[in-house]
Design a protein around this nucleic acid. Structure first.
Lengths: 138, 138
DNA sequence: GTACGTGCAAAACATTTGCAAAATT
DNA sequence: AATTTTGCAAATGTTTTGCACGTAC
């Protein structure tokens, strides 16, 4: 099981050229405009399979849409994502992991797992967005 | 704006009798079986309004479904949720907040916000589930 | 040659929305 | 009486699925 199809290769290739988290539809669209012929269902099926096997990171956006990204760190890590441009920074937080394990233990919980995603504005979009919020420059 | 309708009151009442996180559909179903007559759209609209005003906590499940719950702590806090029964423990983690702010700052991110949810097995479901995973007792 | 993967269109979901009728203030 | 809320059904948007066909092995 798990064959090397042209589509699977193309999806992986597209992902490797991708910086930020992208939805299945965005990835599909990207591929189409790159001249690839792939069905949307195939993109969905492969993204799912790839994330299941840990080769892809999944992030559930606030509206429930799933976003995918090929991360550099293959182990457990978290993301700092820019709300404006999707720019992503991976980070580790061992202390954080430890305190979460401790809290879980205090309450008798086992087999603990967690999701942590941090959203903010990267350097490039911080000032700009603040200005917009005020309705323009002073 | 914001009138006191029978439906809104019923929704709040139903939520107050609720221990765990529930989806809009589950809440609607619950109300129907309690004899309330409410439209599903009304439940959605009210849950949304209530969470917007901070009277309700929202949790986006892994599959993108939104789950609601009336929490005791009205401020910022996190959840430790049992994967089996949905049992929820609220907790604060100031150290964690601090280190996340620090990490964001290191990377120049501002207006930082984060989502953190911890999933595990509560005391009641820990052993049982472990046995199931092995396909029975040794 | 056979089993797995693909493509398409239809189905399945959760959620949102338009609009007329009903209820609140 | 004015205006918000409701209820229903239809619309929306994402993801899944059934099934015939194509393809990797």
């Amino acid at each position: 099981m798990q064959r090397n199809t042209r589509q699977r290769a193309a999806i992986l290739e597209t992902l490797s050229r991708q910086e930020d988290f992208r939805s299945a539809q965005q990835i599909h669209e990207q591929m189409r405009s790159d001249g690839e012929t792939v069905g949307l269902a195939t993109v969905y099926r492969n993204l799912q399979a790839l994330s299941r096997s840990g080769r892809l990171d999944v992030l559930v956006a606030g509206d429930g849409e799933s976003l995918y990204r090929q991360c550099e760190d293959t182990g457990h890590h978290h993301h700092l994502v820019c709300r404006e441009c999707g720019r992503t920074v991976e980070f580790l937080a061992p202390k954080l992991e430890a305190s979460m394990t401790a809290i879980a233990q205090e309450h008798g919980f086992t087999e603990v797992d967690h999701t942590l995603e941090v959203f903010g504005l990267c350097t490039e979009h911080a000032a700009q967005s603040a200005a917009e919020d005020e309705g323009g420059t002073r």
